[in-house]
Amino acid sequence: MILFVLVFNSCRSPFVNLPTYNNVHIDPYGAMITIRYKDNVNKSHTSVGELISVENDSIYVLTKEKSSYNNKYQESYKIITVNQKKASSYKVVFAHSEPNGVFLASGLLTLAHGFFILTSIPINVVIGALVMGEEKYLYSFTHRQVSVDDLFKFCRFPSGIPPNIDLKNLRLRPVKK
């Protein structure tokens, strides 16, 4: 059961700060992007964050970093600027599906499966993890499907970063608890 709960919990999207699919049309934030790119010394990086803007051959991504100071964890936000030509791939997720209560609750029914729990738990864990893993990317696209020229549509500032903005003040969408 512990394994079961862990696996299902682990399926919670890392992009928790996304709207559900039925709210994406009234959402003021940008989509979440996972982008692979090379820096000036050709070292590869992968960053995950909110798509802020695409302009002047650069992609701006707002990321959250965790650091420890005096044994206390602190979160800080950072804008990463990726040269479009140095971006090797990306995946953009703009919404997530609503949690399916019936599907999750049915997993608990395995407790009533008696001997057959030996069959039921692996089936539930494997299928559940695969399904929920897939659900994270139901509302997404990759660099193969949408070109970098169209990425601006999913930015917080599709018309470019306004000049008056202090980028240090930008925050990711608060996670609903």
């Binding site: 019936v102 599907f103 499966h113 089936i123």
Partner: peptide, 18 residues
């Protein structure tokens, strides 16, 4: 956005099995 539900079949089958 329209609901994407191509995972409905495996989910339904699993729920039915459970």
């Amino acid at each position: 956005v329209k609901k994407v539900d191509y995972l409905i079949l495996p989910k339904t089958l699993l729920v039915m099995y459970n």
